[in-house]
């Protein structure tokens, strides 16, 4: 009897029992996942799609995102400044490079939902956001010079705070592994032998390092999972002012 009841219970589990069913497009689930860093199933990941991308262009509130707007992205001819010709590969770069995910998961249910959501942001008949987006990342970075700390704080608020939280304390940062700045950078760099890499003084080396991290993110020799900020998202002046927040004691 118990076996019979269990079988019936399992067989009926998918049937209604007074529940109400709501039917939604898969894109709606993708929209939920786009805000959820758990999507990649990595315990170390703190990024969601919407951490680095907006769906508006320009982004609301003057916020600076390292990634391009996702509005229309599914129908762009290229991604990553022409480095990629296919949407899935473009997403895979974020998925594995920043979000610590496994590429094959993009072919699973969550990946399908994400794809459907991106498609929904690029409806047929609309050309909004469908042109290739140019992002310029200077290959060689150097000391940007001395900037303005007050302006740097404003840049921080628009570009950095959403991930790194408050200056100095990291309050509100997106994850426990995310650096508390400038504290962690100073701890890692203020004892470096800066002359080995061609710098005459420590502060210039530190400013160059901050610029390098901002412009190259985790690429071109710098570690971590931070995405890079291109010239089109942060100007050289803004990066210089940002670097003014980092001063060795």
């Amino acid at each position: 009897m118990k076996t019979w009841m269990g079988a019936v219970a399992l067989a009926c589990a998918t049937l209604s029992c007074g529940d109400t069913e709501r039917v939604e497009p898969l894109a709606a689930r993708g929209a939920l996942l786009a805000s959820d860093p758990r999507i990649t199933r990595s315990q170390y990941n703190a990024f969601a799609c919407l951490t680095c991308h907006s769906v508006d262009d320009p982004p609301a509130g003057g916020r600076v995102y390292p990634g391009a707007s996702l509005r229309g992205a599914a129908r762009r001819p290229t991604y990553w400044s022409g480095e990629v010709t296919h949407l899935r590969e473009a997403v895979e770069r974020c998925w594995t490079g920043f979000m610590r995910g496994v590429a094959t998961d993009l072919d699973g249910p969550d990946g399908q939902a994400l794809s459907a959501w991106l498609d929904s942001l690029a409806p047929e008949g609309s050309t909004a956001g469908t042109a290739a987006v140019t992002r310029t990342y200077p290959r060689v970075v150097r000391d940007p010079g001395v900037g303005d700390r007050t302006r740097g704080l404003a840049v921080w608020g628009r570009a950095c705070a959403s991930c790194h939280g408050a200056v100095g304390t990291g309050a509100g940062r997106i994850g426990p592994l995310t650096s508390v700045l400038p504290r962690d950078t100073l701890a890692e760099h203020c004892d470096d032998n800066f002359t080995d890499v061609g710098y005459a003084d420590l502060q210039a080396y530190l400013r160059a390092s901050v610029t390098e991290k901002t412009r190259h993110g985790s690429f071109l020799g710098y570690a971590g999972v931070m995405p890079p900020f291109a010239n089109e998202t942060l100007t050289d002046d803004e990066v210089r002012d940002l670097a003014a927040l980092f001063v060795c004691p």
Partner: peptide
Amino acid sequence: GCGDEITRYVAPDASPWSAATSN
């Protein structure tokens, strides 16, 4: 318990990641 709202998602006809395959 019963009485919950269950959301059923309807997948589009197109296969995932298909929108940009014409590049």
